[in-house]
Lab assay of single mutants.
Amino acid sequence: FSITQFVRNLGLEHLMDIFEREQITLRVLVEMGHKELKEIGINAYGHREKLIKGVERLI
C-alpha cells in the first residue's frame, strides 16, 4: 500500500506533486496534522481533513 494509492483512494491525486516534492511517505503522513499539511502547501481545510481522517482509518 503506497502513498500514491492512498491519495488516489481519497480522490486527492492532484496533491501527489506536493507529496513527491516533499518526499512524504505514509509513515510521515501519519505523523502530520493540519499545521504540517498546511506548511507543505495543502491549503484547503477539506483536503487536510480528508487526509487526516483517512490516516486514522489506516492505523
Score class of each variant (00 low, 15 high):
Glu13His: 09
Gly33Asn: 08
Val7Thr: 08
Gly54Asn: 07
Gly11Ala: 06
Lys50Gly: 05
Phe1Ala: 10
Leu26Tyr: 07
Gly11Tyr: 04
Gly54His: 06
Asp17Leu: 11
Gln23Pro: 05
Leu51Ile: 15
Ser2Cys: 13
Glu36Arg: 05
Lys53Ala: 10
Gly54Lys: 04
Arg57Asn: 15
Gln5Val: 11
Asp17Trp: 14
Arg21Gln: 09
His34Ser: 04
Leu12Ala: 02
Ala44Gly: 11
Leu12Pro: 00
Glu20Arg: 11
Val30Asn: 06
Glu56Tyr: 07
Glu20Leu: 13
Glu22Pro: 03
Leu37Val: 03
Arg57Lys: 14
Val30Arg: 12
Arg21Pro: 05
Glu31Ile: 09
Gly41Ser: 03
Lys38His: 08
Arg48Tyr: 06
Arg57Tyr: 10
Leu37Arg: 03
Ser2Asn: 14
Phe1Lys: 06
Val30Ser: 14
His47Gly: 03
Gly46Met: 12
Leu51Ser: 00
Leu15Asp: 00
Ser2Pro: 08
Thr4Pro: 08
Gly11Val: 02
Thr25Pro: 06
Val55Asn: 00
Glu39Ser: 12
Leu58Asp: 04
Gly41Cys: 04
Lys35Gln: 11
Lys53Met: 09
Gly46Glu: 15
Asn43His: 14
Leu15Glu: 01
Ile3Met: 13
Leu10Cys: 06
Gly11Ser: 06
His14Asn: 09
Ala44Gln: 15
Leu15Cys: 05
Leu10Asn: 03
Tyr45Val: 10
Asp17Met: 10
Gly41Tyr: 03
Ile59Asn: 10
Tyr45Phe: 14
Val7Gln: 00
Glu49Tyr: 10
Val30Trp: 07
Thr4Trp: 12
Tyr45Lys: 12
Leu12Ser: 00
Ala44Val: 11
Thr25Gln: 06
Leu26Met: 13
Ile24Ser: 01
Gly41Glu: 03
Phe6Glu: 00
Gly41Leu: 04
Phe1Ser: 11
Arg48Glu: 01
Leu51Tyr: 03
Ile52Pro: 01
Lys53His: 08
Phe19Asn: 01
Arg27Glu: 09
Gly33Tyr: 03
His34Glu: 05
Leu29Phe: 04
Gly33Leu: 04
His34Val: 03
Val30Lys: 14
Val55Gly: 06
Leu37Cys: 01
Glu22Asn: 15
Asn43Gly: 13
Val28Trp: 06
Glu31Ala: 13
Asn9Ala: 14
Phe1Glu: 10
Glu22His: 15
Lys38Gln: 12
Glu56Thr: 10
Thr4Gly: 14
Leu26Arg: 02
Phe19Leu: 07
Asp17Ile: 13
Tyr45Gln: 10
Glu56Ala: 13
Lys50Gln: 12
Val55Gln: 01
Arg27Ala: 13
Ile3Ser: 01
Asn43Ser: 14
Phe19Ser: 00
Tyr45Pro: 08
Gly11Phe: 03
Arg48Thr: 03
Met32Ile: 04
Lys50Asp: 07
Arg8Gln: 14
Leu12Phe: 05
His34Phe: 03
Met16Thr: 10
Glu31Lys: 15
Ile52Ser: 01
Val28Ser: 13
Leu10Trp: 03
Arg27Gln: 13
Arg27Tyr: 08
Gly41Trp: 03
Ile52Gly: 00
Asn43Asp: 15
Leu58Cys: 08
Glu36Ile: 03
Glu39Lys: 12
Gln23Ala: 13
Glu13Gly: 12
Glu20Lys: 10
Glu20Cys: 09
Leu37Gly: 00
Val28Arg: 15
Leu37Asn: 01
Phe19Gln: 00
Gly46Ile: 15
Ile59Met: 14
His47Thr: 15
Gly11Pro: 00
Glu20Phe: 07
Glu49Ala: 11
Asn43Thr: 14
Glu20Ser: 10
Ile18Val: 08
Val7Asn: 00
Arg21Asp: 05
Glu22Gly: 07
His47Trp: 10
Leu26Asn: 00
Val28Thr: 13
Leu29Ile: 06
Leu15Phe: 05
Glu31His: 15
Ile59Cys: 14
Ser2Glu: 13
Arg48Val: 06
Leu29Trp: 05
Glu13Met: 13
Gln23His: 12
Ile42Gly: 02
Gly33Ile: 02
Val30Phe: 13
Met16Cys: 09
Lys38Ser: 10
Ile3Glu: 01
Gly11His: 09
Glu49Val: 14
Leu12Cys: 04
Phe19Gly: 01
Asp17Asn: 11
Met32Glu: 01
Glu39Gly: 11
Phe6Ile: 06
Glu36Tyr: 02
Arg27His: 12
Leu12Glu: 01
Val55Cys: 12
Gly54Cys: 08
Val30Met: 15
Leu10Met: 08
Ile42His: 01
Asn9Tyr: 12
Ile59Asp: 05
Ser2Gly: 12
Glu13Pro: 09
Glu31Leu: 13
Leu37Ala: 02
Leu12Gln: 00
Phe6Val: 05
Lys53Pro: 00
Lys35Cys: 08
Ile59Arg: 08
Val7Trp: 03
Gln23Leu: 07
Glu56Phe: 08
Leu58Asn: 03
Gly46Pro: 11
Gly54Arg: 04
Leu29Val: 04
Thr25Glu: 06
Lys53Glu: 09
Lys50Ile: 14
Gly54Phe: 05
Ile59Thr: 11
Glu13Asn: 09
Ile40Asn: 01
Met16Phe: 05
Glu31Gly: 15
Gln23Trp: 05
Thr25Arg: 04
His34Asp: 05
His47Leu: 11
Ile18Gly: 01
Phe19Tyr: 01
Lys53Asn: 09
Phe19Trp: 01
His34Asn: 03
Ile40Cys: 04
Phe6Ser: 02
Gln5Ser: 12
Ile18Ala: 04
Met16Trp: 06
Leu29Tyr: 03
Ile52Arg: 05
Arg27Pro: 11
Ile42Leu: 04
Ile24Lys: 02
Gln5Arg: 08
Lys35Glu: 11
Met32Tyr: 08
Leu10Asp: 00
Ile18Pro: 00
Val55Ser: 08
Met16Arg: 07
Ile52Thr: 02
Met16Ser: 10
Gln23Asp: 09
Val28Gly: 12
Ile42Asn: 04
Phe1Thr: 12
Lys35Arg: 10
Asp17Gln: 11
His47Met: 13
Glu49Trp: 07
Leu37Phe: 08
Gln23Gly: 14
Phe6Thr: 02
Phe6Asn: 00
Arg21Val: 06
Arg8Ser: 14
Arg21Lys: 12
Gly33Lys: 08
Ser2Ile: 08
Ile42Thr: 01
Val55Ala: 13
Ile24His: 02
Met16Asp: 05
Ile3Arg: 02
Gly11Cys: 07
Glu22Arg: 11
Arg48Lys: 01
His14Thr: 10
Leu29Glu: 00
Glu36Met: 03
